[in-house]
Amino acid sequence: MNNDPSQFTLYSGGHRGAEAEFGKLAEQYGVKEVNFSFEGNVLDRDKGMRLLNQEELEKGNISMDIVSTRLGRSFSKGNRIRKVIQSIFHMVNNGYQIFTVGWILPDKTVKGGTGWGVELGKLFNRPIFVYEQDREAWFSWVENDWQMVTPVIHHKTFSGTGTRNLTEDAAEAMKDLFERSFS
């Protein structure tokens, strides 16, 4: 593949785990990096940090009841989780391909806040890829189901998010993804 990494941009959140790892790989390969954050949020990785103001956060605002219904579990109405959900909107809205790391649940949603990024990707009809840590494989959302795939970053904008509890195998799979895409 002959992709020039400098023409690509990763949109992420800079948190510990998958997001920090996506950022390190982006830096290693020369991919531009934007990490969305908000006042009072502490990032593991602040390279390319883009602080969202209140007006920008509001663009990603959605009722926590809708988030809870869509994901089939309850989320607190707290201000911090709301801001995280709002910042995930900006990652998915800016990145065309969506890459996440975590766990696919029996109801076909993805565990935790990462699941909201996946659900937004579905709503926006984006190519979505989840590295499923228990099954140690990449899956893509195709025709309303998860299908095992070997993904490649081929769109100039992509988002990378996922669990804070990254396994060694998942980190290796992310490394392989960048190598497949940019070497």
Score class of each variant (00 low, 15 high):
Leu43Thr: 06
Arg45Asp: 10
Leu43Arg: 03
Arg50Met: 12
Phe8Pro: 12
Phe75Asn: 07
Ser140Asn: 00
Ala18Arg: 08
Ala171Arg: 13
Val142Ile: 14
Glu132Ser: 04
Arg45Ala: 11
Gly72Thr: 07
Glu39Lys: 15
His155Gly: 06
Glu168Asp: 09
Arg126Asp: 14
Asn2Thr: 11
Gln28Ile: 07
Asn35Gly: 05
Ile88Ala: 10
Glu56Ser: 06
Gln97Val: 05
Arg80Gly: 09
Phe99Asp: 05
Glu172Leu: 15
Phe158Lys: 08
Asn93Pro: 07
Val152Gly: 02
Asp44Gln: 13
Arg70Thr: 15
Tyr29Cys: 10
Asn165Phe: 12
Leu25His: 03
Val84Met: 14
Leu43Gly: 08
Asn144Thr: 07
Gly160Val: 06
Gly117Ile: 02
Thr167Ile: 09
Gln54His: 13
Val67Pro: 04
Ile66Phe: 01
Phe158Gly: 09
Met174Ser: 00
Phe75His: 09
Ile85Trp: 00
Thr9Ala: 05
Asn94Ala: 10
Ile62Met: 03
Ala170Cys: 04
Tyr29Asn: 01
Gly23Thr: 01
Glu39His: 12
Asn61Gln: 09
Gly162Ser: 02
Gly102Ile: 11
Gln97Asn: 07
Val152Gln: 01
Asp107Glu: 12
Leu105Asp: 07
Phe124Asp: 14
Asp176Gln: 09
Glu168His: 07
Pro106Asn: 13
Leu177Val: 06
Val149Glu: 04
Phe75Lys: 11
Met91Arg: 08
Arg80Pro: 00
Val149Ser: 00
Asp145Ile: 12
Gly117Trp: 02
Trp103Cys: 03
Ile66Cys: 00
Pro151Val: 10
Thr157Trp: 00
Gly117Asn: 04
Phe158Val: 04
Gln86Thr: 11
Ile81Cys: 09
